[in-house]
Nucleic acid binder design. Structure first.
Length: 590
RNA sequence: GCACCCGUAGCUCAAUGGACAGAGCGCCUGACUUCGAAUCAGUAGGUUGUGGGUUCGAAUCCCGCCGGGUGCGCCA
């Protein structure tokens, strides 16, 4: 936010180093925030320069020399315009902002930009984020929620950072599992209609039933294979039934997406690639890239052999079953290309899929690269770890340990309603219902995106329904408090004015976090890390609470009151913007 | 066997290669006639799994080892 001031300092420092016959370190000056609580400014160190100098010849004590250079640089710079003071400490050059002037600038920017505060300039680049990827005829559980939240939040962050984002979904609407469901439905539920509510839950129950029935039915697999051939031949009864039941799942998904505040720009279906996938496999065989072992074996791509690898790195990719049926890889080979056909100006094609499929994507992308698909270099898999149960136990529908999404959402919303009843009994029912949804959903979404993608998430009911501490309700509560003060202040915000009093360290700390928000957005986007936004939002809420306790606004003297009300408005806006990126609502009351 | 991921306070997790490794939860002690206690203040808690290496500087980068997890020619 203060690039102009920083660049002026860099120019001076470069000249200073030149005079001493020293060079700017490779990569330029590295700036960091002052680590002192309540102090606000930037710092850079001279260790690298001193070390380079020592290596070049004369040796010497690096730490001592760094401090010497820092001291000389401080003397040379004097007190630069825009800064309150400058100091050299332990090899660091510390520059302290004029908090009143800078604070005013930060607060004004946040208020003026409003919902756009933190937004980056348009990059003119386009990215597709594929996420969610549910399978029809199956249930949704908390594992799916992590994917949905990660993908949705990432898409929001990328868009806010300046990317042109396409949100894509890839629905698993075909394959053996789907026909297994259809097979069981025809046998045991023919003519039965979908329930009015919790459709995906019901679809999942029937899927579990189908799995059990198939195990006890010696003719089952043959019958399912027959269904497959009828579907492929366009048999009206089967295709219609498949289409109708698929729609039940899609209706259920849309209901959940709507509840979660998720939308997509482009939807792909596996079934759409059944034909083209097989044609592409034939092409790969024809070109000698794939080996056809049918009917004894499947169609495979021997990647390591093609690459001349001694070690097994890419291994073998199966792209068509020996019985000619398609599988995941068949569809993925053509889908990857289809995305670039649909969006020729795509710069990045991102797949948000759990880590267990890392090798699969490595294989698919490498196969396409060998096939000469140049754009595939723009495709990337973003792996994330799965959601487990305590004791590092993987959820299993067979063991009945899966936490179904609809059930989980209901529990969380009910719990939020209870807490709201206790802490704010005067709310009217309509508002309370809205608050319960906002807080309950926020609480369950947050922990799934507030950790690094490489970390396994552990689900347990107690912590999932605990609304205290580091979580979405904490941030929402800070937002509510800010809103409450502004409401009591009444009327319009005071006009912008530079504070004429010495800012409290708590105010400075809060302003510093507001100022950092735009850079945090950029970093989160470039590293694909939602964690950076959640951490910043928690710190911001914490800083606001510290400020709230230390710095009364409504009862303060007019000039103090005026600046604090504006600071509160800026904090409220930034909290709301952060939550919006995470796909979490910021209620006015709770 | 090969590949990838994880190991930081009792638990769950942070920490652009930089200054004393930080939060929450839990334990204990306090704060609501004072802008909303879903909050806050305070106490206690660490040889960052381990051994080397690179570097002025390593929780962070490289190598070995230990422990845990995941994937590996017809599941998605």
């Amino acid at each position: 936010m203060f690039d102009t001031e920083r660049l002026a300092i860099e120019t001076e420092l470069t000249a200073f180093l030149l005079e001493l016959g020293l060079a700017v370190p490779a990569g330029g000056f590295k700036w960091s925030q002052l680590p002192y609580a309540g102090e606000w400014g930037i710092a850079t160190s001279f260790f690298q320069i001193a070390a380079d100098e020592a290596r070049a010849g004369k040796g010497g004590n690096v730490a001592q020399r760094a401090q010497e250079l820092a001291r000389a640089a401080a003397a040379r710079l004097g007190t630069p315009t825009g800064f309150a003071r400058i100091e050299a400490v332990k090899g660091y050059l510390n520059l302290y902002y004029i908090t009143a002037a800078y604070g005013q600038r930060v607060v004004d920017t946040a208020i003026e930009d409003g919902a756009a505060f933190g937004r980056g300039p348009a990059r003119g680049q386009r990215i597709m984020v594929e996420f969610s990827q549910p399978n029809t005829h199956k249930a949704l559980h908390v594992g799916h929620l992590r994917n949905m939240m990660l993908g949705a939040a990432l898409a929001n962050i990328l868009e806010f950072a300046g990317w042109d984002v396409i949100r894509a979904n890839y629905i698993g609407d075909f394959g053996k599992d789907v026909l297994k469901w259809v097979w069981n439905y025809r046998k045991h539920h023919a003519g039965e209609a979908r329930p009015a509510e919790q459709v995906t839950h019901w679809m999942g129950d029937l899927y579990a039933e189908a799995t059990a029935n198939l195990e006890n039915d010696p003719d089952g697999n043959k019958e399912i294979e027959a269904l497959f051939h009828r579907w492929e031949a366009g048999d009206e009864e089967i295709v219609n039934l498949w289409r109708e039941t698929r729609q039940w799942s899609l209706d259920g998904f849309n209901e959940v997406y709507s509840q979660l505040g998720i939308h997509f720009d482009r939807i792909y279906f596996e079934s759409d690639f059944e034909q083209s996938g097989k044609e592409y496999v034939a092409e790969l065989i024809h070109r000698g890239l794939a080996q056809d072992e049918r009917p004894a074996g499947p169609v495979i791509v021997k990647l390591d052999e093609l690459l001349g690898n001694e070690k097994e790195e890419y291994r073998v990719l199966v792209i068509l079953r020996s019985d000619n049926t398609a599988l995941y890889a068949t569809w993925d080979l053509v889908l990857a290309q289809q995305k670039f056909k649909d969006y020729p100006d795509l710069d990045v094609s991102l797949y948000v899929v759990d880590v267990r499929q890392s090798q699969h994507f490595k294989q698919v992308f490498k196969t396409l690269e060998l096939a000469g698909i140049a754009e595939i270099k723009k495709a990337a898999h973003l792996p994330y770890e799965i959601v487990n149960l305590p004791g590092n136990i993987t959820m299993s529908s067979r063991d009945g340990t899966v936490v179904l999404l609809e059930f989980f959402i209901n529990e969380a919303v009910n719990r939020a309603r209870q807490v709201s009843l206790e802490s704010n009994p005067e709310l009217d029912e309509q508002t309370r219902a809205e608050v319960a949804w906002a807080v309950g959903l926020g609480a369950i979404k947050f922990p799934l995106i507030a950790r690094d993608n490489t970390k396994i998430a552990t689900f347990d009911w107690e912590s999932a329904l605990d609304f205290n501490g580091q979580g979405a309700p904490y941030i929402q509560y800070a937002h509510v408090r800010a809103n409450s003060i502004l409401r009591k202040a009444g009327g319009d915000l005071p006009a912008s004015a530079m504070p004429t009093y010495t800012l409290d360290p708590k105010e400075v700390a809060l302003i510093e976090l507001l100022a950092a928000f735009p850079q945090v957005v950029q970093r989160a986007a470039s590293e694909y890390r939602t964690l950076l936004i959640t951490t910043h939002a928690l710190e911001l809420a914490g800083a606001f609470n510290d400020f709230y306790n230390a710095c009364p606004a409504l009862t303060a003297e007019p000039p103090v009151r005026a600046f604090r009300l504006r600071l509160i408005a800026a904090a409220k806006q930034t909290l709301a913007n952060s939550l919006a990126l995470l796909g979490i609502q910021a209620p006015a009351v709770m």
